[in-house]
Amino acid sequence: MNGDLNLWVEGIGIWTPGLPDWNHFIAHLDGQPAAEDAPARPGASLLPPAERRRAPDSVRLAVETATQAVAMSERDAAHLSSVFASAHGDAIIMDYMCATLADTPLDMSPTRFHNSVHNAAAGYWTIATGCHRSSNAVCASEASFGAGLLEAATLAVSENEPVLLSAFDVPGKGPLVEMLSTHVPFGCALVLSPERGTHARAALRLRLHASSQPQQPPSDPHLRRLARQNACGDALTLLEALATPRPGSTCIAAGDGLTLHIETDVPA
């Protein structure tokens, strides 16, 4: 396929148990032990307290990583279009809804119903940041991160504007669990700009190939395990490359029989 997508990474966010932000992620790759005081749930302190109470963990995860990435980019969140990618959105709410519908459908909780939309995270985020720009919520099963990255990069390049990408998946509950590939919560976020601004931290060149090249797993053993336990775990390969201060290249699935070839260049 044609059409290289050239972008600059301006901000990075990450949250998973034990690795609650980018600095902890880098420390882990440097061989330091996991943070003992790491929070058990994503803080999502950007959300006002009432919203934070109402928000399911999937939303807190997406908002937490998006907040980290935007803070690193020093951009105003209200100016950023956003793409939220997740294979399953909130599988815990899906379990609640299906269980309730099977037994007492008239008892459906209205809050949990409106939280069940795939764009719940996009909704909470744009409300909390006062952002009127376009927000999207996409999925592509096990290629949800790659497909979300493709969409965010396409948006940034064709509209010539910085874009926030937040990718996340959380474990489910109940009978649905065996239909899901996510067993550990993990989310990450990137602020991507088509231009090299003062906060450009790494260069990305994306090229889409219509072929199934083997997904490159992360080289770190912990990240490799995590990548297998989360539908958006492909992102860890790219995050690992972004933590490496030299040029590199990785492959990430963008769909069935579709590969995103990504060249990274992180200034040392």
Binding site: G89, H118, N119, A147, G255
Partner: peptide
Amino acid sequence: SGPCLTVSTA
């Protein structure tokens, strides 16, 4: 066999 995404913004 081209790009394939599902959008779910309600």
